[in-house]
Amino acid sequence: MGTDSFPLIDLSGSAHERGRQYGAAVPERVARSIALYRSQMQRRGLNRDEQYRLARAFQQTISAYSEAYFEEMRGIAEGATCTLEDIIMINCRTEMMFGYERLGDAAPANASDENDGCTGIVVLPEAARDGRLLHAHNWDWREECVDTGVVLRIRNDQGPDVLTFAEAGALARHGFNSAGVAITGNFLMCERDYREPGEAPLALLRRKLLDSHNLAAAMSQVFNKTRLCSNNLMLSHAEGEAVDLECAPDEVFWITPEDGLLVHANHWVSPIAQGKLRDLGLRGNPDSIYRQRRVVAALRAKLGRIGIDDLQQALFDEFGKPDSVLRSPKPVSFDSISATVVTTIMDPAQKKMWLARQPYLSRSFVEYTL
Rank of each mutant, 00 (worst) to 15 (best):
Ser178Leu: 06
Ser212Pro: 08
Val150Cys: 08
Ala339Asn: 11
Asn214Glu: 05
Leu262Ala: 04
Pro286Trp: 09
Phe316Ala: 01
Asp309Ser: 13
Asn138Tyr: 07
Ser270Leu: 09
Gly281Phe: 15
Pro286Lys: 12
Val222Ile: 13
Ile121Val: 12
Arg48Lys: 09
Asp116Thr: 14
Thr164Lys: 12
Leu36Tyr: 07
Leu326Ala: 03
Asn266Glu: 15
Ile308Pro: 00
Arg44Pro: 07
Leu84Ala: 05
Asp335Pro: 03
Leu133Gln: 00
Ala57Arg: 12
Arg155Leu: 14
Asn214Cys: 07
Gly75Tyr: 02
Leu36Ser: 06
Asp10Arg: 06
Asp211Asn: 08
Ile308Arg: 06
His264Phe: 05
Val146Trp: 04
Asn47Ala: 07
Glu78Arg: 08
Arg327Asn: 07
Arg291Pro: 05
Gln59Thr: 15
Pro27Phe: 01
Val332Ser: 14
Met353Tyr: 00
Pro108Gln: 12
Val341Gly: 11
Tyr368Met: 02
Arg363Pro: 00
Gln21Asn: 11
Lys352Asp: 12
Ser364His: 13
Asp193Trp: 00
Leu54Arg: 10
Leu233Gln: 03
Leu11Phe: 15
Pro201Met: 09
Val122Thr: 11
Phe176Gly: 00
Thr256Glu: 09
Gly79Pro: 00
Ala200Asn: 13
Leu124His: 06
Ala25Met: 07
Cys82Gln: 03
Ser112His: 10
Asn138Ile: 15
Tyr368Glu: 01
Asp259Ser: 10
Ala109Asn: 03
Ala298Asp: 04
Pro201Ala: 02
Trp268Ile: 11
